[in-house]
Amino acid sequence: MAEVAPTGLSEVMAELAALADARTREVNEKHGDDHAVNLGKLRALAKRLRTRQDLAVQLWATQDSAARLLALLICRPKAFGRDELDAMLREARTPKVHDWLVSYVVRKSPHAEDLRLSWTADADPRVAAAGWALTTERVAKKPEGLDLAGLLDVIEAEMKDAPAPLQWDMNHCLARIGIDHPEHRARALAVGERLEVLKDYPTSPGCTSPFAPVWITEMVRRQRS
C-alpha cells in the first residue's frame, strides 16, 4: 500500500523533523548549509506531496531550510510574481536554497529575463551571482540577443576581485561562452589564463577542473570525440 502523504503544514513539518539527522546536518554545515534532511528523502517526500502551491508558500514562510527546499520542489514556478521571487532570493540564507530557487523556480518563471537583468547589476554579490547563473543558462541554451563580447569584457574586468559566490558563477559563464561559442573561444581561453581564477581549485580524480581553460578544452574535446 502506498504511503499516505501528509496533508497540512504541521504534519509536513513533523515529518521533516522525523527525517532530520545530526550527521547530515554536520556534513551540510561544511558547505554553508544547515538542513539536516537527506536530499533523497526530501525528494521522496516531495514526490508523495506532488504539486502543492499553497503548501509551498506556507513552507517557505517557516524560514526553515529543509522546509524551503521542499517548497521549491512542490511549488508552481509560474505562480510567483516578479517581486515575490526577488524577495525570496534575498531571503535565501543558504547556498542550497539559493541554488534550488534559481534552478528549479526562477528559470521556469516568465519573469526570469527581467530578473536576470536586474540581478546581474545588483550590489549584493549573492543576488548578482543569481543573475550570472541565469545569464549562463542563456549563453548555453538561448544566446540570441546576448552581447557575448560585452559579457567577456565584464568578466575580464570584474571576475578576479569578485566575492567567491559571484566569482564562481561568472567563471561558469566564461567557460560556457568558450565551450558553446567557437567564435569567442580564443578570447575566453585567454581571459581564463590571464586571470587564473580557480586555477588551483582542488579537483577529485576523474572530475574536470573548474579552471576555465581546462574546463573549456576538456568539454570541447568531448564534443569532438
Rank of each mutant, 00 (worst) to 15 (best):
G150P: 03
A22S: 14
A129R: 00
A128Y: 04
G8P: 00
A164W: 14
A71F: 05
A87K: 12
R90W: 09
W168Y: 14
C173F: 00
A149Q: 08
R222W: 12
Y104P: 00
A61S: 13
A157R: 14
P110W: 04
V191H: 01
E158Y: 05
E158T: 10
Q53K: 05
A123L: 14
T120F: 00
I179S: 00
E84C: 03
I179C: 00
T136K: 07
D99L: 13
W215A: 01
L16R: 06
G131R: 00
S10F: 11
T7M: 11
K41T: 05
S103I: 04
K96Q: 15
T7R: 15
H98T: 04
R50G: 04
K199P: 01
E26S: 14
D122A: 15
R194A: 15
R138S: 07
V214I: 08
V220P: 02
Q223T: 06
L117G: 09
Q223V: 03
P110D: 01
H31K: 13
A157K: 11
C207W: 12
D114A: 15
W168V: 06
A71G: 13
V139S: 01
K108H: 11
A164I: 08
R126T: 07
W100Q: 14
L45P: 02
E193A: 05
T120E: 12
P213D: 09
G8S: 14
A123S: 15
Q58M: 09
K108S: 11
R25D: 06
D114R: 12
R23S: 15
P125W: 08
E29W: 05
T208G: 06
E193S: 07
P95W: 07
T120V: 14
V12Q: 03
E196A: 15
W60Y: 11
V57Q: 10
K142F: 10
L117H: 08
M159F: 02
Q53C: 01
L39V: 13
R176F: 08
L198H: 13
R187M: 05
A17C: 09
W168K: 12
A79Q: 09
Y104M: 04
T51H: 15
A186R: 10
R90G: 08
W60N: 05
P110G: 02
E196V: 10
P125I: 12
L195T: 01
A36Q: 09
R23N: 12
D33R: 10
S109D: 02
A162S: 05
A212N: 04
N38P: 05
A87W: 06
A22E: 12
E137A: 04
W119A: 03
L174N: 06
W60A: 03
L42V: 05
V106P: 01
N28I: 03
R25V: 08
G40W: 08
E144D: 13
R52S: 11
R107H: 07
R222V: 14
H35R: 07
E113I: 03
A22G: 03
R187E: 06
S118K: 14
V106R: 01
L134W: 00
W168Q: 08
L19V: 10
D114V: 07
L115A: 07
D169S: 13
L72Y: 05
V97T: 15
K30Y: 08
E15S: 10
I179D: 01
D99P: 04
